[in-house]
């Protein structure tokens, strides 16, 4: 299977108290558990990202519960307003327990 790679689009600089749009994408098949293997006719077991959390300086800024009806390579867009400079940490949790993460620094003036 292709390597699972998270990508986020975060502005490096922001103004305090103003809305900042965050875009995230992670390469993941989001196997729904409904699909059948064309050769064997057996169901392909479910394997999806079921949880996404964005924290800023350790505090939860946004989170999402995901079901199999979320498209492959889940895309999530949300917005935050920040009071101080810091690091935003993004975490995606897989059905198998693995956690994929990435961090971005934001300078707030």
């Amino acid at each position: 299977m292709a390597k699972i790679k998270p990508r986020v689009k975060v502005p490096g600089k922001a103004t305090a108290g103003e809305a900042v749009t965050i875009k995230t994408l992670i390469s993941h098949p989001m196997e729904s558990g409904q699909r059948k293997d064309r050769k064997t006719g057996e169901l392909i077991p479910r394997k999806i990202i079921n949880k996404f959390v964005a924290t800023y300086n350790g505090e939860t800024a946004f989170s999402m519960d995901l079901e199999p009806a979320i498209s492959a390579n889940p895309y999530i867009e949300f917005s935050v307003k920040l009071a101080e400079s810091g690091t935003m940490r993004f975490e995606w949790t897989d059905d198998d327990g693995s956690v994929y993460d990435i961090e971005k620094k934001i300078e707030v003036a």
């Binding site: 999402m64 979320i70 498209s71």
Partner: peptide
């Protein structure tokens, strides 16, 4: 109209600029 109706749930916090989010779903 999906085999299971659940798609996803967004959770907002005090840090959210507004309670708005986007994603892509399967129908």
């Amino acid at each position: 109209g999906n085999p299971n109706p659940g798609v996803g749930t967004f959770h907002f916090t005090a840090m959210s600029a507004e309670s708005r989010a986007s994603t892509r779903i399967r129908l």
